[in-house]
Nucleic acid binder design. Structure first.
Lengths: 344, 344
DNA sequence: GACGTCCGTCGAAGCGCTTCGACTTGTCGC
DNA sequence: GCGACAAGTCGAAGCGCTTCGACGGACGTC
């Protein structure tokens, strides 16, 4: 047991000396890029442990031209969807670690310049972009960036990009189909806040189109409207909606923040759930399970999406071909908030 | 306009050549660590822009022994508090960028080994640790790590550490004082889920102690109990609580997820807010404003806490002395959910 | 007018790692 | 028993940057 050379950091040279081999040999043991004899490998690994060696990330990045870091770009405007975004972020980190990568958290508030900086400085090998809008200013940049990237969500023009997302169009359909089977004929979609549609956020538009199309196919009467967040706004919206469409027997809610208020308000308007009106949510399972009654829902499988995104990015980093679009099939979980429409 | 040398990356040598100076001069222009004449500086900066130069992060880190990156360590168990955690994270990123630092997102699921790896590999210069528990296994590690760190939250033994947080003890007091002024005598604290107390999470315990102490000081009758999340659980909890303590005229709710259900449930139990019972929330302003009625609340100033944490860390990186504890004063915003108790 | 003093700039030496020949053995085929 | 070849290891050359000491010239001083 020598006293450690530098108090600051154990280098590969220290390990080499301790194990009685060349520095390059240590490197090859650690990377596995050349054959090393069993005995040497073990000796080296023992020294690594004995000295508590961790390769210097900067030096490694410089020499190998790989930082082993990916960027996760989040929207700064964190308005809605916060828990889902969080779930994504955590899952991206966990997935990346499985591939021995770390995650640099980047917000969009620096704008394209921020992305450019991160990419050009070789801080990261690849980029995962969240909360993509239909017409996203960061997207053209991505194409010219010369670093592989994966988008969570679909922009209007996805040519040349790799995108992953829940199939929201299908999700809209699935909700309608479930209600159709139960016998509902008059349904409504309570969507995201108007601002989200205006912003051209893909999932909101795609859910609506799936919803509308499936309703038409089943000969149902369907209305859709944006819904603001907040208990008071939800109550007001519901009153107006039921006033204009008193025969509605089912609602699809795509707005996490509105789920609770909707369920709380309906009974006060004389509509029991599910006897008088059925409710389907497009929201995380946690919300659905905590609601009362427990909500029939289509969750956004954040973890699965994140895992896929990271896996795709890793493939691209290895120059393997990947599919341009990955759409995850929605699963609808039936709980206590949906039933057949009232007899009348 | 030369054609760019390497398609891959513009180096400092390219800039130097383009500007007709030495590489070191470019470096000094960019870092400002030595005097450079106005004319040279401008020529260099022009070349930097013309070539679109961005320093290679790895090389810079290697040579300067500063990565210009800080680690943000989040709990993996993201159970409650998700929006607040998210707010913290975003604010940490934004604040760090002001100091020209980036943020590496780390989860606790690798355990101490993960922290050790990050620190030893010199990937980050410092660490911000969130969601600290009273007896946190990562804390002892932090002391031996030789990288500066700042905690958001307080462990039981904070010796030798730098901690920032809302003064939850005071927050509990402030809520009580507001209710005392209105004339309430019988109050209750609806706390975090039992698991959070069991885990020894500091803010929950400290709020409770502040609440209890202030109530005693004002001669009020005070009960406290953990509250689970979920609409049904809240309803059940409220029913039991009001059953045992029918004279309660005010509630303090420290559980974001319970705020909505509490407000929705009380009227169904024949208690109007605020005429029959007042409610104070300890929750983000967004929740309070979206509630109906709008909630008198003490927000957790996530952005301010994050900003402080980053600023403290930057001071430590510059070897400046910093206070061991930074407690932010709570502000109570009066809205529509509190009033004098009913006359009877 | 000779001498210290700055100011502004340069060249070179690393930072700790990966990677590319090249070299030394041992092994096999015939 | 000799060439061919593979397996295992080493040394050295960078990767792109920062930083230190040195150096030339402009300036002020006595």
């Amino acid at each position: 047991m020598d006293p450690v050379k530098s108090p600051d950091q154990v280098t590969i040279a220290d390990v080499a000396r301790h194990a009685g081999v060349a520095g390059s040999t240590v490197s090859y043991v650690l990377s596995g890029k050349r054959a090393i004899s069993e005995v040497t490998r073990n000796r080296v690994l023992a020294s690594v442990r004995a000295l508590g060696y961790h390769p210097n990330a900067g030096a490694r990045a410089l020499a190998s031209r790989r930082a082993n870091v990916i960027a996760l770009v989040l929207p700064l405007r964190s308005g809605m969807q916060v828990p889902v975004v969080m779930q994504f972020a955590m899952a991206v980190v966990t997935s990346a670690r499985r591939f021995d990568h770390d995650v640099l958290l980047v917000t969009s508030d620096e704008g394209p310049a921020g992305l450019r900086r991160i990419a050009a400085s070789a801080m990261v090998d690849g980029i995962v972009l969240m909360d993509v809008e239909l017409d996203d200013s960061r997207v053209p940049l991505l194409r010219e960036l010369a670093r592989p990237s994966v988008l969570i969500g679909f922009p209007a023009d996805a040519a040349g990009l790799t995108c992953v997302d829940l199939d929201f169009h299908r999700a809209g359909q699935v909700c309608v189909e479930h209600l159709a089977e139960l016998g509902h004929r008059q349904i409504a979609l309570l969507g995201a806040p108007a601002a989200v549609y205006d912003r051209g956020t893909g999932f909101a538009h795609r859910t609506r189109s799936g919803f509308t199309e499936a309703a038409a196919r089943h000969g149902m009467t369907a209305v859709t409207r944006p819904f603001e967040e907040g208990a008071a706004a939800v109550r007001q919206g519901l009153i107006e909606l039921l006033d204009h469409h008193p025969d509605l027997s089912a609602l699809v809610v795509q707005n996490e923040a509105a789920v609770g208020p909707v369920l709380a308000t309906l009974p006060t308007l004389g509509r029991r759930v599910p006897q008088d009106v059925s409710v389907v949510g497009i929201c995380p399972d946690r919300f659905a399970e905590q609601a009362s009654p427990m909500l029939t829902s289509v969750p956004v499988p954040a973890e699965e999406v994140a895992r896929q995104a990271v896996a795709l990015l890793m493939s691209k980093l290895r120059d393997e071909p990947v599919p341009a679009a990955t759409l995850l099939g929605p699963r609808l979980t039936v709980r206590d908030s949906t039933a057949a429409p009232p007899a009348g």
